[in-house]
Design a protein around this nucleic acid. Structure first.
Lengths: 210, 210
DNA sequence: CCTACCGATCGGTAGG
DNA sequence: CCTACCGATCGGTAGG
């Protein structure tokens, strides 16, 4: 989870101009792909935003599809880095749910553009990248299903829950934030996660006055 | 809410070949736009699926963008027809929530392709159509916020709910179904709605044994 | 990183 | 509904 992985032959050193330019290209591509969609963004649009000619992009990147693949996979890595370490944590399931939701929403909130590209364009990846994302998605599904099952096992969650449907409901809440959350707004990811977790854990219905 | 609106000068009579062909075009367009995305679907792709040449489409429709507009607006009309009549119903808020969620999910489930196009492509509409959809979206948000407020007013829902966030959570659950629901599968829209509403109303946490 | 260019494909139209 | 075509634009490359 370091911000600056060790340089490899394929990846220029962290402070080199080449790497900065590559990062800029990915950043702008994420913005344009999220605003206009992948197929509606031309390489000339992208180059124009960076003050260069269309063909010049290919001095830095290998092709349009690779831009998409890297944006999607970087988003997937962020979700993994945020959630998967929680698997081994000894923590009551309700608290773990709260923590997972907060981390999940924070990844979305901190990466609204990549998250949008992720949710909208992953079906249009090449077969290899598509399969990769599908198996990643299964990992995240399993993470939440295991969390629910753990809570039921502990007696903290209701015993009559449908594990799969419960995980679906949780995932709906945290994923759908990409459509409405506004990063500069009054709500922090923590605010959203706490309110959502409260509602999910305790329910909307008023306590029985009897 | 009739299936067959009265013919107008712009709309051929219900059983005419022209209308059937137009419907076929819209149907196939919905499928292709949902599978490949709007911009990645060419008019020649669309024509090919219908056994005709690209140019021949324009004997039936006026342009690609109008196809998108009609698909999106038809989906919006379906949501309206399902939900808005509930506004006037005298019904306890918890029951109304259950009913609204079932209807909402049914619209998604019965129109998986249009729903996908709706959620993925509405931002790419022309300014006029975009504004139309935005105001429609506000209507649906208001519907769920009013429902929550009603439930709080009746004392059926917890008094400490945040109305806007509660509506967001409900909308997350019902809208996100477009990503995972499988129409031929074991779950009916009613099954999904009942499980979701149960979890939302009562919560995941086990009742206090004390 | 630019100029100049490639073949392919785009949405749409004319005329029948 | 087809043939033939329009100008525009696409992703990408060669050569510098």
């Amino acid at each position: 989870m370091t911000d600056r992985p060790a340089p490899t032959p394929e990846m220029p050193p962290a402070d080199s101009p080449a790497r900065n330019r590559r990062e800029q290209i990915h950043e702008v591509a994420g913005r344009l792909f999220s605003e206009r969609g992948y197929h509606a963004t031309s390489m000339r649009d992208l180059a124009g935003q960076l003050g260069m000619q269309g063909g010049s992009l290919y001095a830095h990147i290998s092709g349009k599809e690779d831009l998409l693949v890297e944006i999607v996979q970087q988003a997937a890595r962020q979700f993994d880095a945020a959630l998967l370490p929680l698997r081994g944590e000894a923590m009551p399931a309700d608290q773990k749910l709260r923590e997972a939701m907060e981390r999940h929403i924070r990844v979305v909130a901190d990466n609204m553009e990549s998250a949008t590209v992720f949710f909208h364009e992953w079906k249009h990846l090449s077969p290899a990248a598509y399969a990769h994302v599908t198996s990643w998605r299964d990992t995240i599904d399993a993470f939440y299903r295991d969390l629910v099952a753990q809570g039921m096992g502990e007696g903290l969650f209701r015993p009559d829950l449908d594990v799969k449907m419960t995980a679906n409901l949780i995932l709906s809440a945290v994923n759908w934030t990409y459509t409405w959350y506004r990063p500069g707004g009054p709500l922090t990811p923590r605010d959203v996660a706490e309110r959502y977790a409260d509602m999910l854990l305790v329910g909307l219905r008023a306590p029985d006055p009897a």
